[in-house]
Structures are given as structure tokens and as C-alpha cells.
């Protein structure tokens, strides 16, 4: 398979993730869609790494995975804190994160 096929799949995944972030209202699902976008980036990075035959792109992908793990930890922490405060779990009604 030529590399461009992988890049097309990656672009499709990214677009799907973007649609999900815009359309869904549950912050948990919004985080899941962010994961989709990050993974699309990972696929493109690894495709380019394969294209050049250089391992640097894979290191990039691993760093992206670390960043995604951090984002998940903080995002889910915020969701749990919202739940504890009995705030609605809905991104349309949560207009501010202050206090």
C-alpha cells in the first residue's frame, strides 16, 4: 500500500473527530472525539515515519500518546469534579469553568 492511503484514512479520522467535537454535548464523548483527532495525527506521523524510513516520527507519536494521556487525566478529573458539584454534564450548559 502506498503511504498516501494511510494519510487519507488519517484525514478522514481527523474530520470525523472534529465533527464529533462540534456535535456531541456530553464532555466525556467530546474527550473521546479529541482522542480520535490525536490518533489521526498519530497515524499520519507514523505514515511519514515509514515514508522516510526514519524512527523520529514514531518518537513523535509516542510523545503525542503521552500528551493524550495527560489530557485524559485532567479532562476526566474535571468531569468528575463537575459531577461532584451536581453541575449538569453538558457542554452547552457549562459556559464557564470558574469557581
Amino acid at each position: 500500500m502506498s503511504i498516501s492511503w494511510f494519510l487519507v484514512v488519517s484525514a478522514l479520522m481527523f474530520a470525523l473527530g472534529a465533527i464529533g467535537v462540534l456535535v456531541r454535548r456530553n464532555p466525556l464523548v467530546v474527550l473521546l472525539c479529541l482522542e480520535l483527532m490525536l490518533n489521526a495525527g498519530n497515524l499520519a506521523l507514523i505514515g511519514f515515519s515509514r515514508m522516510w524510513g526514519d524512527g523520529g516520527g514514531q518518537i513523535f507519536a509516542i510523545v503525542v500518546m503521552v500528551v493524550a494521556a495527560c489530557e485524559v487525566a485532567i479532562g476526566l478529573g474535571i468531569v468528575v469534579a463537575l459531577y461532584r458539584r451536581r453541575l449538569p454534564i453538558d457542554v452547552d450548559e457549562l459556559r464557564e469553568l470558574a469557581g
Binding site: S2, I3, L7, M51
Partner: peptide
């Protein structure tokens, strides 16, 4: 991604 004109995009990648 595809319009970059990178020649290697349509190959299977470099020799590993």
C-alpha cells in the same frame, strides 16, 4: 497531505 508533491507519497516508503 496529497498535494504536497512529495514523490515518496505514492511509494511503499523508503528502504528500511
Amino acid at each position: 497531505l496529497l498535494g504536497t508533491g512529495l514523490q515518496a507519497l505514492d511509494t511503499h516508503g523508503a528502504k528500511l
